[in-house]
Amino acid sequence: MASVTFKGNPVTLLGNEVKVGDQAPDFTVLANDLSEVTLNDSKGQVRLISVVPSLDTGVCDAQTRRFNEEAANLGNVKILTVSVDLPFAQKRWCGAAGIENVQTLSDHRELSFGQAYGVAIKELRLLTRAVFVVDSNDKVTYTEYVSEATNHPNYEAAVEAAKQAN
């Protein structure tokens, strides 16, 4: 399992670590309108999945804004941001931040995504910071579990991986 800290303290990640070459695990999360969303809903597309603890924090805010900006350069790549924030809060945040190129999804109900991708923090019931790229055949082509959850991911590597998978 990936070794991760949150504000310098080691945390326990639930679920299985996802590795490059793996078949992307399915999940069920909620869209901002409370409808269920699964991996299969974007089948046939390249997906960049940005995972954040909470949109209401500085690094998570910056990460989501950065991938929103990068979307213009990524062509047919669908960008998903997953957190345990409530769908209502995600919708409010997106409206205030002008986010239009990223779909925010809530894993608050079952931690389905968090456990499937090994990013659920047991002690905090949050998701750790991570980025995954899943190609149009549902193969994982890039993973980054950020070792300190309050740090930024490697944006350039994730964007390049999404371009290569496209």
Rank of each mutant, 00 (worst) to 15 (best):
F113N: 01
T141V: 15
T128I: 08
Q103W: 05
K139N: 13
V140A: 09
R129A: 11
C94E: 15
S112R: 04
L111G: 02
L127W: 09
L111C: 11
A130S: 10
K78P: 04
E110I: 15
D138S: 13
T81Q: 03
W93D: 05
V119K: 00
R92G: 11
L86S: 10
K139S: 08
L86F: 13
Q90K: 13
L105V: 10
T141N: 12
K91G: 13
A96V: 15
L127S: 07
E100Y: 10
V131M: 09
G114C: 06
A130P: 07
S112P: 07
D85F: 02
G98S: 10
A120F: 04
Y117T: 00
I79G: 00
I121N: 04
L80T: 02
Q115M: 14
G114I: 00
D85A: 04
I99G: 01
D85L: 01
V77S: 06
R109V: 11
P87F: 03
V133H: 05
R92V: 14
S106A: 14
E123R: 15
G118Q: 03
S106I: 08
A89K: 08
A120K: 04
K78M: 10
A130I: 09
T104H: 02
L124S: 14
V134N: 02
Y117C: 01
A96I: 15
G95Y: 14
